[in-house]
Design a protein around this nucleic acid. Structure first.
Length: 478
RNA sequence: CGAGAUGUGGCUCAGUUUGGUAGAGCGCUGCGUUCGGGACGCAGAGGCCGCAAGUUCGAAUCUUGUCAUCUCGACCA
């Protein structure tokens, strides 16, 4: 009997070690490679293609809502960064500095942008003069650098790619609406395209962005019950505008400060996709961002006409989906495993018997269900299956979240849940930082957000017992 | 940043205790046989042993430093 040889492509199963499973998937699916600088990763073609698909989806939504893309510098002079106190204090520990140009020491050091608020402010000061210049709805696609102590592929890297929207508005209401509308767009893309259910809510003061009046986020639950902040929007009021002396002449002919927002989603979302949908065979990609939606695999491809027929089918379905054909000289089984690892939503097998019967076999990645489909029906069946797969991914993710969501009325309950389970805990909070800190230190949970969809778990704070009317979702986070 | 672990062909690792001139499996290349769930045979190619300094006649192996990766913790818009 032949010895079963060790498969180098083996992926650690999630139940054994979720963290290792994650890095195995990231590496084996060839999403990223490490560079020689700590926390800096190379996003490989397959990972990059996922990001590009995400980029296209979001960019389209931004343009539909009148946002314009710009490109700002990578470097920020120190004095500029210093202008807004809270902001600089928040970011100081994690900025990288350029101190030398060629052989010459710089008279003023330059920071590599950790985010671009101050750059946008400097520019907005110049281009905003009248209420007629507002709103300004700018967005930038680019990368930023944050010198993190602990890094993990996609989830927290030293350099990461993202979009950062920075907008200026005439009124407070308009700016607040912008932060909420953007959060809605983020949530909509997550849920309807990426099949990731999210909680929309407001961050506590402790968790909010340095310099913001309010921060909102969408929180997604990963397969292991941990939370991943997957998109954020900030309302700044006129704090930055004052610090940077940005004024415009109002409708009343008087100088006024505009109100500002910023918001971003990053390559971290790829981590969310992996940890929401992936399984022990590797990635499972939602069709909207899958670089390959249908992989065509010719069976017994050495036989006459098989490759021709498969190529013809690939060309035909390319009209309505991202399709690829693999005619490499690997066994069919090898290819099956390969594309399952890469999370390709649908596999289309076509062999001599199929050709004879004018049919093919389509297999779904999410549940391995096999369908025998007439070649006459590909145009209707493939989109239908892709959509069913998306729905199923969403349902499974939602079910996972719901099965790992608990509620606690008092501190003991909260601690017990935190001790025994991984997941979200709904509990009331009085609003005091002290209670939030105690919950972090004693229960090991941080506040994820105060969901817009509030529920009254009880009427007193889970920590101090004083009257409370805010429900907070607590959890462990990436 | 604290504690621990690791770094040897593309990948997974052995070799380090006791210093003596580098190994295996997989992958890769070529040819042939296979081909509906990770096929097989034969023949090949491929390694400044993370980097730097030191000890030594001699270092993958010992010493020091440094960089990176992983795990846990602290930190983390």
């Amino acid at each position: 009997m032949a010895m079963q040889k060790k498969m180098v492509e083996d992926i650690t199963s999630m139940e054994v070690d979720f963290a290792k499973w994650y890095t195995d998937v990231v590496k084996k699916a060839e999403l990223i490679d490490y560079s020689s600088v700590k926390g800096c990763t190379i996003i490989q073609p397959y990972g990059c293609a996922i990001w590009e698909n995400f980029h296209d989806i979001l960019d389209k939504r931004l343009k539909e809502t009148d946002h314009e893309n710009v490109l700002l510098p990578l470097l920020i002079p120190e004095n500029l960064l210093q202008k807004e106190k809270d902001h600089v204090n928040g970011f100081a520990p994690e900025v990288a500095w350029v101190t030398q140009g060629g052989d010459e020491k710089l008279t003023e050091r330059l920071c590599v942008r950790p985010t671009s608020e101050v750059l946008f402010c400097e520019h907005y000061k110049k281009v905003i003069n009248s209420y007629r210049d507002l709103p300004k709805l700018y967005n930038q696609w680019g990368s930023v650098v944050r010198w993190e102590k602990t890094t993990r592929p996609f989830l927290r890297t030293t350099e990461f790619w993202w979009q950062e929207g920075h907008t200026m508005h005439e009124t407070e209401k308009e700016a607040i609406d912008e932060t909420i509308n953007m959060l809605d767009i983020y949530a909509d893309i997550c849920e309807n395209q990426l099949a990731i259910p999210v909680l929309k809510g407001k961050k506590t003061d402790k968790e909010k962005f340095a310099g913001a009046v309010a921060t909102y986020s969408i929180e997604a639950m990963m397969h292991d019950g941990k939370s991943l902040q997957s998109g954020t929007t900030h309302y700044f009021g006129d704090g930055f505008a004052k610090a940077f002396d940005i004024t415009f002449q109002g409708r009343d002919n008087k100088p006024q400060f505009p109100c500002q927002t910023s918001w971003g989603m990053s390559t971290r979302i790829i981590g969310a996709i992996i940890m929401t949908h992936g399984d022990n065979d590797g990635l499972v990609l939602p069709p909207a961002v899958a670089p390959i939606q249908v992989i065509v695999i010719p069976i017994a491809q050495h036989k006459d006409g098989v490759i021709d027929k498969a190529t013809e089918i690939k060309k035909r379905i390319s009209a309505f989906c991202r399709a690829k054909i693999d005619v490499r000289d690997y066994s069919a089984g090898w290819k099956f495993a390969e594309y399952e690892m890469k999370g390709v939503p649908l596999r289309l097998e076509i062999g001599p018997k199929d050709i004879e019967n004018n049919q093919c076999v389509i297999v779904r990645r999410d549940n391995r269900e096999k369908y025998i489909v007439s070649l006459d029906n590909l145009e209707t069946e493939i989109p239908k299956l892709l959509e069913e797969l998306r729905k199923n991914l969403y349902e499974k993710a939602l079910q996972n979240r719901e099965s790992k969501t608990y509620s606690a009325k008092n501190f003991d309950e909260l601690c017990n849940i935190a001790q025994e389970k991984n997941g979200f805990v709904k509990a009331m909070w009085c609003g005091d930082l002290e209670c939030e800190m105690k919950i972090r230190d004693k229960a090991g949970l941080s506040s994820r957000c105060m969901p817009f969809a509030q529920e009254e778990v009880s009427d007193v704070c889970v920590c101090c017992g004083k009257p409370a009317d805010k429900m907070v979702v607590w959890g462990k986070a990436y």
